[in-house]
Design a protein around this nucleic acid. Structure first.
Length: 271
RNA sequence: UUCCAAUCUGAUAC
């Protein structure tokens, strides 16, 4: 219920359990808090946080990380750091790599890449080594700010640190390659990950297909569409939008409409 | 016997 934003059902479910004699734990509250945070409802999340305190339940690291995540996603970096300071001065809760990754992502999303980099140094000083998440966040953040050279530096640094990129890391790097017009490098990365036994995801395919399509390499794009289906992934709304948008921009509305109809026939609902 | 299942961070189009 929480993940899908059905707060009322989630809360009703919790009430029912309480009536039946069950006791909510910190994890129960964390789940609810996460539900509100994910949908940007920070006031409600905070209310639950206080509710937990009132019930003599000690918020744990997950509670704090979840709130930090929520504040970052609504762009309230100040409040996120306020909570971080609270953890740091607390005796019972200690930050983790996840705390730092969440804050670094928040800084990247607010456009403060410099501060994000600084925090990466800070976490290292505090004995938390950046992991694949940290680097993926920074590669993505650099790309979003248009600094593709920095994005590559972060990816390379991750390898130098002996970390093994996963599907997310590879896909993020592929976005970078597509943005700098190096479609073939992106394709090469896909082969590399497959050789390492890492399966590309639907998003990986969407990134490649979108990039290839925009670069005019329709043959390769179609080839990948086939590979994607062979791999058990079916085109989703994003895949279709990539192609529809291309035709729409070129003014080929009949072609665009064909794809749109095809998408509906396949049972996909437009966003 | 130690299996499965519960809470926190990262990637794509518009």
């Amino acid at each position: 219920y929480c993940k899908y934003g059905n707060f009322l059902d989630a809360l009703a479910c919790g009430d029912e359990l309480v009536h039946k004699g069950a006791t909510p734990t910190v994890a129960t509250y964390n789940t609810l808090i996460y539900g509100f945070c994910k949908w940007g409802k920070m006031i409600e999340a905070r209310v639950l946080f206080f509710h937990m305190l009132k019930k003599d339940l000690e918020p744990d690291l997950v509670s704090y990380n979840t709130l930090i995540y929520g504040y970052c996603r609504v762009g309230n970096i100040e409040e996120a750091f306020h909570l971080y300071d609270e953890i740091r001065s607390s005796d019972c809760v200690v930050p983790s790599v996840i705390t730092y990754n969440t804050l670094i992502d928040g800084l990247c999303r607010s456009g403060d890449l410099d501060e994000a980099q600084r925090l990466k140094e800070v976490m290292t000083c505090h004995g938390f080594l950046p992991d694949v998440f940290t680097y993926t966040i920074l590669v993505n953040g650099s790309c979003k700010m248009g600094d593709f050279s920095l994005a590559k530096d972060f990816f390379d640094e991750m390898l130098l640190e002996g970390l093994e990129p996963d599907c997310y890391a590879y896909t993020t790097r592929m976005v970078r390659e597509m943005r700098v017009g190096a479609a073939y490098e992106a394709l090469h990365l896909r082969e590399e990950m497959v050789e390492k036994g890492i399966l590309p995801s639907l998003i990986t395919y969407n990134v490649l297909i979108d990039g290839l399509w925009k670069s005019g390499d329709y043959e390769e794009a179609k080839h990948l569409l086939q590979k994607m289906v062979q791999g058990g992934f079916f085109p989703d709304c994003v895949t279709y939008t990539c192609l529809i948008n291309y035709y729409a921009e070129k003014g080929q509305l009949i072609e665009a409409r064909k794809l749109f109809v095809d998408m509906i026939i396949r049972g996909l609902s437009p966003s």
